[in-house]
């Protein structure tokens, strides 16, 4: 177990080091998110939505911004390995599950960093007030993990195919849509302070994310070695 964790952390550290050399994934994600947020804030702003519609629409808009930003850069972890021809060496140096764990951790941290910048900005620019901030953060955290799990396995698939950029969105969108529906409902409930509804949405997110994690862990060796 400790050996697995150590090797996973080594893959994660390698990815972070490589990322900080060029910052392609971070920059893509952050710029995409900030640009979209600026467009949304400029056109809608804090007073552009009727009071009754605010929780639902602001929750939906937040996840749309996060989702499209994720589409802009979360495939880099695997695509970069194939483009720079370092994937064969990684296949020799590390076990598949370790690579999957390292890449998943990298995507989770990337997405968490993005949300740490984006969400406070969103709250300020859109004038969002949340009745249950603790539950709101919990929904965001669960969403971050579930998004990272799904995009990691899809990125691994896409890296082995042609026309990767377009394919990443094509393959991710349908798998992530049910998750986004639950997340938007959960975020709305957290904004309105309806804790039982937050819990129902969280249960759905955690179960879908959990099933995806187990399926990804089992299937990743096939994607990685074929």
């Amino acid at each position: 177990m400790w050996r697995f964790l150590g090797e996973t952390m080594a893959v994660f550290a390698k990815d972070m080091r490589c990322e900080f050399r060029t910052r392609v994934a971070f920059n893509s994600l952050a710029l995409f998110a900030v640009t979209t947020l600026a467009a949304v804030s400029y056109t809608i702003g804090p007073y552009g939505i009727a009071e009754a519609d605010r929780p639902y629409l602001l929750g939906a808009l937040l996840w749309i911004v996060v989702f499209f930003a994720a589409m802009a850069g979360l495939d880099r972890s695997f695509v970069k390995e194939e483009e720079t021809h370092t994937a064969p060496l990684l296949r020799l140096a590390a076990r598949p599950l370790v690579v999957w764990g390292g890449k998943l951790l990298f995507n989770t941290v990337t997405l968490a960093l993005l949300m740490a910048i984006l969400v406070p900005l969103y709250v300020v620019l859109m004038g969002l007030s949340v009745r249950t901030p603790g539950w709101f953060i919990l929904v965001l955290a669960a969403g971050c993990l579930a998004l990272a799990v799904t995009t990691t396995i899809v990125a691994a698939i896409v890296a082995r195919a042609m026309s990767r950029g377009a394919l990443f969105a094509v393959l991710s969108v349908p798998l992530l849509l049910p998750l986004l529906v639950f997340l938007i409902q959960g975020t709305r409930a957290a904004i309105e302070g309806r804790v039982p509804d937050v819990l129902a949405a969280l249960r759905a997110v955690v179960s879908l994310g959990g099933v995806m994690t187990v399926a990804s862990a089992f299937l990743f060796p096939v994607v990685w070695h074929d």
């Binding site: 195919a161 394919l167 393959l171 096939v222 074929d226």
Partner: peptide
């Protein structure tokens, strides 16, 4: 996805993984 992978064996394996997911 099937259309984006030219190699038949890799296409079959990746499509199988996606179908399961």
């Amino acid at each position: 996805l099937r259309g984006a992978v030219p190699d038949p064996e890799r296409k079959a394996a990746l499509a199988a993984v996606y179908a399961i997911l």
